[in-house]
């Protein structure tokens, strides 16, 4: 599964990720990772973290070492012997997956930002993780690189890895994720598949020759709610929300038989961006 973690700057996405990984401590409450408490005994946290790959904000490497050496040294830095050798054995594979095998011998100092980002993803993949936590993984990548990363994440998710991606790029999340969580002011304000989040905002845009008459007709149909106030008469556009079971065709038929000339009728929905903004503003309102 590919989970998208959305939120405006300062919403707490990175802090949440850091807390899940045991890097920062919560003031209260508990965090569980793969069924183990993160802030319990350190053995529990470490057992869970061994099954997690992470990219937190920017990738971090020893710049004077080559990309390959960086991966090798991280592999050797901890863990039981079999875990270390399993990671070492995967170095070539993860370098290939992020298309860095040719640059693997160069010092990280000489890498472009996009190459570092891909090396960061390679590091996250090194332990063959069950959960992959990626903070803004397409940062600094060109469009081609972005698409490659998305394809890579999709294929990992299809192979059974849970991929948790934070992003501020709504289009990216919308196109890529199976499930989206929206964070605002440190609180999860919405969660669900992108289509479901969007469905809440589906509307019908109708262009008519006589707004007043159209309004009267529409007012008589159950399950149709007009959006906002339109001018009293003359030609113009009306936006209505349809309840389940009311189709655009029925609305059209009703308008025509009521003597309204309909020149255009089209479904319209907010982008996830609008949904997102309204969710975040909704969270703002009580303040």
């Amino acid at each position: 599964m590919l989970y998208g973690f959305l939120g405006p700057n300062g919403a707490g996405k990175t802090t949440t990720i850091r807390m899940v990984l045991g890097l920062v401590f919560p003031n209260g409450g508990e965090v569980e990772l793969l069924g183990r408490p993160v802030f319990g005994p350190s053995g529990e946290r470490e057992a869970a973290l061994r099954k997690v790959g992470a990219l937190v904000e920017e990738p971090g490497f020893w710049r004077y070492l080559s990309g390959r050496k960086n991966l090798e040294y991280f592999a050797r830095a901890a863990g039981p012997a079999e875990d270390r050798s399993a990671r070492l054995a995967r170095v070539d594979e993860v370098l290939r997956r992020v298309d860095l095998q040719e640059a693997a011998g160069k010092r990280v100092k000489a890498y472009s930002q996009g190459m570092r980002q891909r090396l960061g993803i390679a590091l996250a993949l090194l332990g063959d993780p069950r959960i992959l936590v990626l903070d803004e993984p397409t940062n600094g990548l060109d469009p081609q690189g972005m698409r490659e990363v998305r394809t890579l994440l999709r294929s990992l998710a299809d192979d059974g890895t849970t991929v948790f991606v934070s992003s501020h790029l709504l289009a990216e999340v919308e196109a890529m994720c199976d499930e989206v969580g929206v964070l605002a002011h440190g609180r999860l304000v919405a969660e669900g598949p992108p289509s479901k989040l969007r469905a809440a905002s589906e509307r019908l845009r109708i262009e008519v020759d006589d707004l007043a008459r159209a309004r009267a007709v529409l007012g008589g149909i159950r399950g149709v709610v007009s959006d906002g106030d339109a001018p009293a008469s003359g030609p113009g556009t009306i936006r209505v929300r349809l309840a389940d079971g009311v189709g655009p065709a029925a609305v059209n038929a009703a308008l025509v038989s009521g003597g309204v000339a309909v020149s255009a009728l089209a479904p319209e929905h907010d982008s996830l961006e609008d949904v997102f903004v309204s969710l975040v503003q909704g969270e703002d309102a009580p303040r």
């Binding site: 350190s42 973290l49 901890a78």
Partner: peptide, 16 residues
């Protein structure tokens, strides 16, 4: 250098 967080999530224990 940004490597500390990756060592800690590797995970290298803090005491270690």
């Amino acid at each position: 250098g940004g490597t500390l967080r990756y060592l800690l999530v590797r995970p290298v224990g803090r005491v270690r």
